[in-house]
Design a protein around this nucleic acid. Structure first.
Lengths: 152, 152
DNA sequence: TTTTCTGCAAACTGTTTGCAAAGGC
DNA sequence: GCCTTTGCAAACAGTTTGCAGAAAA
């Protein structure tokens, strides 16, 4: 096996399959990005991905990071989110782990959350809207637990 | 009266007052941006603002547009939204006209909407969260009425 | 008349693209 | 061996900043 992209039912292995089915080859850069994303519970920026890969001795060119993320996004394998920090973030799309984000306005921390009531409200609205709704993003802004406590 | 920034209870006049109270002078660029924003029902990009002002013979330097928007955002007079189009949009903050956005993935149209159920769900969640929630953004993605109809 | 504001041009940051070399299949 | 993928460097788009002249108060 040339590249790990671990086995079984992991997100990475499913993503690798779909990439192959779409005619993509599994080169070093793609495999490295898949492996890293597979471990992420929440969204990373392209720069964070690049740095993490370099940090683990699997450096990948910046352009390749962007190219891979773009392909994955197009295939629906990652979710691209913009949290108002002027740079995109990407996270593995796991249908069973749908979530949204809280952004701390003080320290910039990004915290995932999910809420059934919110999803219900969106579903109801989507059915009523004069618009074909394919997806949604929700961002809450405020102060995270740590920053709230440390305020004067 | 040096600059129009119309009278009465308009958003622009309230914004002008708060700017003055914060120690800002009402120069030509600020007045022009206030007047333009006052007419907007939804969010514009900096580029759209610049073009609209030029179009009405009140050209304003790009840097000034950004500077004014930044000040207004800091004072809470405009709302800055990022709709996943890699550029920020700004709209007058009218507490009585709180709304969110639908973005058409086909034509890029931005359509405002509001929904009481959604706001209720967010309020409930905010009260429960381990986070001080100050605000929220919601973006629905899909196909607008026009694009939905014209699909093959 | 003092201090702020404005426009220009240059700098910056995040992202994309062209191209030659390396590498899957 | 053919064709894709990769990394580099240069190009780009949106945004920010420094500075000198224009203009509020």
């Amino acid at each position: 096996m040339a590249h790990p992209v671990d086995a079984g039912g992991s997100w990475a292995s499913r993503a690798a399959e779909r990439l192959a089915a779409a005619g993509y080859r599994l080169g070093g850069a793609r495999a490295a990005v898949l492996d890293l994303l597979d471990e992420q519970p929440c969204a990373l920026t392209a720069y964070e991905i690049e740095a993490a890969l370099r940090g683990r001795g699997r450096a990948v060119g910046r352009a390749s990071v962007y190219r891979v993320l773009d392909e994955l996004d197009e295939l629906g394998l990652v979710t691209r989110v913009e949290l108002g920090q002027s740079q995109a973030r990407y996270e593995p799309a796991r249908p069973d782990h749908h979530h949204h984000h809280l952004v701390c306005e003080r320290c910039g921390a990004v915290v995932p959350f999910d809420d059934a009531g919110l999803e219900r409200a969106i579903d109801a609205l989507s059915r009523r809207a004069d618009f074909d709704v394919h997806g949604h993003d929700i961002v809450l802004r405020g102060a995270c637990a740590a920053c709230r406590g440390s305020l004067s």
